[in-house]
């Protein structure tokens, strides 16, 4: 599995492979999500229970100001919708990936990304999502989605992305 596919938060199928070594996800490693091939998000946007709906209609990511991990109104609105979706679609667990822009040192950005991912996770928990459904990981500045070196790109890279995986069984 190519790392970049799932790291960009686009592939639920990819996420399964990526999480294969993480104990909380062990039960679900073999779930085949709608026979999707790697690189595509499972389901269709028309199906409100599908990961692609979550990604596109609900919104899978929230953004942060420079050096901040505070959730603004837009972020809370998005996370409210994510929480509602997760509460209705209990078959899914999620890993929240925290990211930073390139304007910072490597180690600090790993720590900062963790702060951001944790802020999103705490908010989802405050809205009723069970903590054991939500993992976090930080990529620091290692996985930008936008590659220009100006604020318009940086703003999109300072993010926390909620990546779904087929969830807790039983």
């Amino acid at each position: 599995m190519k790392a970049s596919v799932w790291l960009m938060g686009l592939a639920v199928a990819g996420m399964l492979a990526a999480c294969s070594k993480n104990d909380a996800f062990e039960d679900v490693n073999n779930v085949d999500l709608n026979n999707q091939t790697a690189g595509a998000v499972a389901g269709t946007a028309g199906d409100p229970t599908s990961p692609v709906y979550f990604q596109q209609a609900v919104g899978d990511r929230v953004f942060f100001l420079v050096d901040q991990s505070t959730l603004n109104d837009d972020a809370r609105t998005t996370l409210d919708a994510q929480a509602s979706w997760l509460l209705q679609n209990t078959d899914y667990v999620a890993t929240i990936e925290g990211h930073a822009d390139e304007q910072g040192t490597r180690e600090y950005n790993v720590a900062l990304g963790e702060r951001r991912a944790n802020a999103a996770r705490e908010y989802l928990i405050s809205r009723g999502v069970a903590g054991n459904r939500l993992k976090i990981v930080s990529y620091g500045k290692e996985r930008p989605v936008e590659i220009c070196s100006v604020e318009s790109c940086y703003a999109k890279n300072r993010r926390a992305v909620t990546v779904l995986a087929a969830g807790l069984t039983g």
């Binding site: 991990s69 180690e107 790993v110 720590a111 963790e114 702060r115 944790n118 990981v137 930080s138």
Partner: peptide
């Protein structure tokens, strides 16, 4: 937890590093 930024002590017996958990490193 996430651990990163490791470095050896001068005698090589200890590793210092950062650990991030719950939004705190």
């Amino acid at each position: 937890s996430m651990s990163f930024a490791p470095r050896f002590s001068p005698d090589g017996n200890t590793v210092v590093f950062s650990q991030a958990q719950g939004g705190n490193t």
